[in-house]
Amino acid sequence: MNRIDKLFQDKKERVLNVYFTAGYPQLNDTTTILEALETSGADLIEIGIPYSDPIADGPTIQESNGVALENGMTLKVLFNQLKGIRDKVSVPIVLMGYVNPIVQFGVENFCAKCEEVGVDAVILPDLPMFEYLEIYKPMFEKHGLYNIFLITPQTSEARIRQIDENSNGFIYMVSSASTTGAKTSISLDQSDYFARVKNMNLKNPTLIGFGISNAETFDKACENANGAIIGSAFIKAISEEGNLEEKISGFVRSVIG
């Protein structure tokens, strides 16, 4: 059973998914961050594959991508770091990235490596659904990899249904029309959208991301979905001075109490 399905079978609310950029702040922080996040109480961890042109991301994640690339992070390096990670970390791991580096690595090869190291799912925001269905899906399925789709307040009901039909694991609900880290709160006008999606009774669990930055926004998101995703706020937290593990546990504690 995919670790993500197991997670949502056991835990249906207040699921915390934390994003960090591989290779940031230091090239070899990956396993330290993964272990500290799990110990601190993250239920699911999203590792960002740095890219030169991350168009869905705001300044914080862009900057972390730039630093990570300068540090020498590549997919090869990342997969090497993740070798043996399943001896240390048991929460589901999702890779998030843009499609071009995956294409250059080789999609089949990428999927095989994911399976080998124990990655459970992938989020590729710029991969169109039909490209996924026609070209990527057989390779993903062969290697037990889930593809996570995004929906936004502008996504039509018909398309949400179609996405739900083709999804495994969970659906990533983008909270508002924005890039990552652009907003630091959840506003009232989003509640219509949250309610609309809730009433659709989708077969997949939902996690809300974009604009989730602290306990208040996390709680608010959890009222409307199975949990939430924090990215930019976490990157900011680990950018500050101090011991990395302490910063991580401090941040997670501040969010989930």
């Binding site: 869905a56 499609v99 710029d126 169109p128 490209e131 995004l150 936004t152 502008q154 996504t155 983008v174």
Partner: peptide
Amino acid sequence: GGAFIPEMLYP
């Protein structure tokens, strides 16, 4: 060609 865009731009 194609349209490799994030869902936010799909509409």
